[in-house]
Amino acid sequence: MRKVTIADVAAQANVSKSTVSQYLNKRYDYMGEKTKEKVKAAIEELGYQPNIVARSLKQKSTKTIGVIVANILHTFTTEVTRAIEDFCNGSDFHTIICNADDDPDKEKHYIEMLRAKQVDGLIIFPTGNNRELYQRMLDDQYPVVFLDRSVQDIPVSAVLLDNEKASQLAVDHLVQKGYEKIGIITTSIINHITPRLERIQGYEEAIRKHGLQLNENYVKSAEPSEIQDRLNELLNLDTPPEAIVAGNDLVLIEVLKYVKQNHIRIPEELAVIGIDDVSFASFYTPAITTVAQPTFKMGKMAAEVLLDKISKKKIKDDRPDFRFEPKLMVRDSV
């Protein structure tokens, strides 16, 4: 079957090819409603499909961005990518989402693959271990934004939570409720992931601020599969913590599994605060106190900054970091 062309649509609608092209590119400034309706009807009747590759070559833009997430299982990741997709859709951009699993090799593969597909820019939750690749994108003046994490000495705009304040809010609330023996568990810090390190730093600063003794045995980090083992070590110390700050949603899930399996009562035997306001926190029994991130605002900001870079709009600094405020959601677990 012969492929329907712009010329066929123009003939069907009794307009010029340039008018059809203007319609397809949503340039309606000098186009009457009747003309728009005729072109639309002709496209539908003929089943015309634009040649996206040809249009991309002509416009030097694929109207597509790539998003490389660290771990798609995180509630945070799901919500921010939804916000990115919503914002890009409203700006007539498509998104391709890739899951790197915090694996530098997978991240490198996805960066190279997406650039080969000529996406217009990237939003990356960086592993931090592809510094040469990040720097090459900067040298090429390729639009890129980091989300949730930054990489030291790599001047890429980053959208992050105020992570230190997040754990400080958790510790402040626990101290206010009379707790002094407070522990924290995060996922692994081996790769120096920004939010994990900053949340531990914020925890330590808050402990000192309240004049409490900083117990190194109360600070644990591990892969998700090992979280319950670390929690078991914590709670079997000679002087175990009375309260736990779960560093993210995956840690909180493992803490709650352990608590249920070992018949530990919250908050009577162990107080719990999670960083990341997971959907089940409000209806779990007891409802879990959390520190929430403004996930949709963060995702929207990342998309907005990237599209500004793509359209060559001026960004304030070479590397502005956009920090968002956490919010304590007080419930029944503390």
Score class of each variant (00 low, 15 high):
G211C: 09
N130S: 09
D229G: 07
G202Y: 02
L147W: 10
S221N: 14
L133I: 14
T239H: 14
G202Q: 01
D139R: 15
N129I: 03
N236E: 09
Q135W: 03
D229Q: 14
A222H: 02
L197W: 07
V175Y: 10
D238E: 14
R208K: 15
R136D: 11
S167N: 03
Q213Y: 14
L197Q: 12
S150Y: 10
L133T: 14
L133G: 05
P143S: 09
L161K: 02
I185D: 03
L214I: 08
N130C: 09
G178Q: 09
T194I: 07
L133M: 13
E164S: 11
I124R: 08
G183C: 08
H192E: 12
Y179Q: 07
R131N: 11
T187F: 08
D153A: 13
D148A: 13
F125H: 12
L234H: 00
S225N: 12
N215Y: 05
L138E: 05
T187L: 14
I207C: 06
E180Q: 15
Y142L: 11
Y218D: 06
Q201H: 15
L197R: 10
L214R: 11
G202W: 01
R199D: 00
D140F: 03
E233Q: 14
R131T: 14
E216V: 04
N163T: 04
E226Q: 15
I189E: 09
A158E: 06
Y179K: 14
M137L: 15
T127L: 06
T194E: 10
P155T: 07
R131H: 09
